[in-house]
Simulated assay, not measured.
Amino acid sequence: MAKKKNITQDKLISFYMDYVLMHNQAPNTVYAFAKENNFEEADFYKKFTSFEALEKTIFKVFLDNTLHVLEKSEDYQQFDARNKLLSFYFTFFENLTVNRSYVVYALKNKGLKSLSTLSELRHAFKKYIDTLDIETIDIKEPRIVKIQDYSKQESFWIQLMMIMKFWLDDTSPSFEKTDIFIEKSVHAGFDLMDIKPLKSVLDLGKFLFKEKMQ
């Protein structure tokens, strides 16, 4: 039988997810994996250096697919940062739910190794957070701005991990409790980051400083 041609990244991911769900483990070798799915071993290495690299890509693909859906929505384009993030989470977890069996395998069964599996997702998610233009205190000192940006990225990454853990343990119909948790988490997160009260204090301080100087 002729070997399959045009082996894309998506096809390799599909083959791999099917394999681990059928066998509850990764293939022993790329050679055996290629032979079982009838394609050339070299075609695997054109896309990935290892199964570990493929696993990392899977979670980034979930994020990429989420953004692809959102970018088509005119409503999403008009949302503020809070509602954009809500839409992102709802869509992202819909994608995870479609692939729940694999996600449970990858995150629940691998323990601490799953943190490495999420490294590409982490990088892509933090870049997404930067696009939301979440308001922070206007400070001109570059080092402070860098710390602010890092803290913002890390805070929302921790939030995503908390929601993912809740979703993995959620036994409610259609994971409706996860939807509630998403809403409460996002609103709480943005309320804690609300800088308007602090801005008012800073404005008062500037006013008093000017008055004293005069």
Score class of each variant (00 low, 15 high):
A2Q: 11
K3C: 04
K5N: 09
K5E: 14
I7H: 02
K11T: 11
I13V: 14
S14R: 15
F15W: 01
M17P: 08
V20L: 14
L21C: 01
L21F: 04
N28Q: 13
T29W: 00
V30N: 05
A32H: 14
F33K: 15
K35V: 09
N38R: 00
E40S: 13
A42M: 08
K46C: 10
K46W: 00
K47N: 15
F48K: 15
T49R: 14
T49H: 07
S50K: 02
T57Y: 03
K60F: 07
V69L: 05
Q78D: 05
Q78R: 15
D80L: 08
A81N: 09
L86V: 09
F92D: 09
F93P: 03
N99I: 10
K108S: 08
N109C: 12
K110M: 07
K110N: 12
K110V: 05
K110I: 03
L112I: 08
S114C: 11
S114L: 03
S116N: 14
S116P: 01
T117D: 11
T117H: 05
T117R: 07
S119C: 04
R122V: 12
K126M: 11
K126P: 02
I129A: 06
L132C: 10
D133Y: 03
I134Y: 07
P142F: 01
S151P: 01
Q153Y: 00
E154M: 12
I158M: 10
I158A: 04
L160H: 11
M164Y: 00
K165P: 00
F166S: 13
W167S: 11
W167F: 06
T171V: 12
S172E: 11
E176H: 09
F181N: 06
I182N: 03
I182H: 00
S185G: 12
S185R: 02
V186A: 02
F190T: 08
M193A: 13
I195W: 00
L198E: 12
S200N: 05
S200T: 04
G205F: 03
G205R: 05
K206D: 15
K206G: 09
F207W: 00
F209G: 03
K212N: 10
